[in-house]
Simulated assay, not measured.
Amino acid sequence: MTTPTRPRMTGIGRVLVIVYAIMALAATGRSFVQIVREFDDAPLAYSLSALAAVVYIVATLALVFAGSRGWYLVAWIAITFEMLGVIVVGTLSLVWPELFGHPTVWSWFGMGYVFIPLVLPFFGMWWLVAHNPADRPVLAAA
């Protein structure tokens, strides 16, 4: 009896995971420095940066393991939350700038990160739609 193996991630999926991992590292580093140095100056903004870091870490892991249905669902949740976070925080940072004393990862729709936070969730969702594990045939044991 053989166990079916998870297909290896290649191509655009691998690039997507690398970009998510870079965003996870960048957001984690940024939020750590902000919280350690000057949390009292802008607790909301720096807490949102830390939340963004957690979301990027979860999304990275979920995309790596998205071949299983459980991780696939986690990827959808994380990427949807990311998209909503970027849109809400980005909008609020434009219409109510005094709410954020300092920029976050998602402020101004990710302008500090070359707008990657704005476009990344759309690529992530596209990839998830194209690679739904429910669409793959189940390999029978030989």
Rank of each mutant, 00 (worst) to 15 (best):
T2D: 15
T2Q: 15
P7H: 03
R8V: 13
R8E: 15
R8K: 13
I12K: 13
G13T: 11
G13I: 07
G13E: 05
L16Y: 08
L16D: 05
V17Y: 03
V17N: 05
A21M: 13
I22D: 14
A24R: 07
A26Q: 07
A27K: 04
A27S: 14
G29I: 09
G29D: 02
F32K: 00
F32T: 15
I35D: 15
V36R: 15
E38W: 00
D41M: 11
A42R: 01
P43W: 01
L44N: 08
A45V: 06
A45N: 01
S47A: 11
L48E: 02
S49H: 02
A53E: 04
V54C: 12
V58M: 01
A59E: 00
L61C: 07
A62R: 08
A62S: 12
V64H: 02
F65A: 13
F65S: 10
F65V: 12
A66V: 05
A66S: 11
S68Y: 10
R69C: 03
R69G: 12
W71C: 01
Y72E: 01
Y72R: 09
A75M: 08
A75S: 07
M83D: 13
M83T: 14
V86W: 02
I87V: 10
V88D: 02
V89D: 03
S93N: 04
L94Q: 08
V95H: 10
W96N: 05
E98N: 15
E98T: 14
E98A: 15
L99Q: 04
F100C: 06
G101D: 12
S107M: 00
W108Y: 14
F109S: 05
M111T: 08
M111V: 10
Y113A: 06
Y113L: 10
V114T: 09
I116Y: 05
L118M: 10
V119L: 10
P121I: 05
P121H: 06
F123Y: 04
M125D: 05
